[in-house]
Simulated assay, not measured.
Amino acid sequence: MIRRGLAAGVLVIAAWVVLPLWQRQDHGPPMAGSMPGATASLPPATELKGPAPAPVRYAYQPECPGQSGPCLRWHLVSTRGEQWWLPGVSGEDTFVLSDDGTRAAYPHGGGFVLHDLMTGTVTPLRVEGEGEPMFSLDGRHLAVGREVADLATGRVHRLNGEARGWTSSGVITSTLKPDDRTPGRVNVTVFTVSSPEGRRLRRSTSPGDLSSDGVLSPSGRQFATLMREVTPTSVTTTSILINRERAVTPRLPAGWTITTILRWRGEDGLLVRMRGPANRIAYHIVDLTTGRPLPGGVEERGLSTVIGRLN
């Protein structure tokens, strides 16, 4: 049974139409609490027939005027600013993009399909796992639950646990277990990196209290998590902790805070989801050497968003 729904950790809820920050033009210094730039509108969406002329920056589910619910389709925005919708793809289903924005995967006919956006080819996959589909960093494999599909051959391999993410060498699974070396009821998270064929490559551990939103880097040697400050009125990210050894202070405009780490960008950047004034949502790559967001982010003003080739 395929779980149909919005992709957790990549999809978010808001209430407007999605606009890319990269299209905006500055008109003087940004106001406090705002991300740089002035809003520009997207061109009308057209049906994508055949190959896409450019990779996809992000996909979103728009709100349709005159309807009580969302539009039953996904809209794709390219790196050049074109906007398309995909025929045969329900907006109520999970939809994911590869990191380079050239491939998409979504449920169809009781399974999943691979949509090569650069060629227009749609290929059925034999994966039957439940869970969030995740492309490998190079876009050559797709993990769904306990299964990994080789997108070149169509062969499917079984994992020993639920896929949680990818490094450059393989797929990540994790297990929470008691820490026998520490007195008291303390847990650690054991991360296992396996080849796409299911062969175990290496293991590492992290304190259990940091594992819920932590993400391994492509090398598998760095582990990033958020440190938060909770007050009666808000939850604010105070720092990004790397391997519990180095803290990076986010340097964001006033009123903005990081809510989720989505994935690494190389070994020195993190793609994050941020919340700002009036519950605005934005996605940016944060430079871990400076703590500042890089240019070219996306602000969400739609019902749900999936990030592809952001930068």
Rank of each mutant, 00 (worst) to 15 (best):
I2D: 04
R4G: 04
A8T: 12
I13T: 14
I13S: 13
I13H: 13
A15D: 15
L19R: 13
W22G: 04
Q23T: 15
R24D: 13
D26W: 06
D26R: 05
G28I: 11
P30G: 02
M31K: 14
M35F: 15
M35V: 15
A38M: 12
A38T: 12
T46R: 13
E47R: 15
A52P: 00
P53H: 05
R57E: 12
Y58G: 01
P62I: 11
Q67L: 13
Q67F: 10
C71W: 01
R73H: 13
W74V: 04
H75A: 10
S78P: 04
S78E: 08
V89R: 08
G91Y: 11
E92G: 07
V96T: 15
V96M: 09
L97W: 10
R103K: 15
P107T: 06
G111F: 01
F112D: 03
L114A: 01
V122F: 03
R126Y: 02
G129C: 10
G129K: 09
E130G: 07
G131P: 11
G131Y: 00
E132Q: 14
P133E: 12
S136W: 10
S136F: 10
G145N: 08
G145D: 03
L151Y: 05
L151Q: 03
G154Y: 02
V156C: 07
H157I: 07
H157A: 13
H157N: 11
A163F: 01
A163K: 08
R164G: 14
I172K: 10
T173V: 14
L176R: 14
L176K: 13
D180E: 12
P183V: 08
P183D: 10
G184S: 08
R185Q: 13
V186C: 07
S194N: 09
E197C: 01
G198D: 03
G198K: 07
R199G: 01
R199W: 02
S204I: 00
T205Y: 04
S206P: 05
L210M: 08
S211G: 07
D213M: 11
G214P: 04
Q222T: 04
Q222F: 14
Q222I: 00
L226E: 02
L226R: 03
R228H: 03
E229K: 12
T233E: 14
T233N: 12
T238W: 01
I240N: 05
I240W: 02
L241F: 01
I242G: 00
P250Y: 05
P253G: 05
P253W: 09
G255V: 12
G255L: 09
I258G: 05
G266I: 13
D268K: 15
G269Y: 10
L271R: 11
R273T: 11
M274K: 00
A278E: 15
I281Y: 07
Y283V: 05
V286D: 08
V286Q: 00
T290G: 09
P293W: 02
G296K: 02
V306Q: 15
N311F: 09
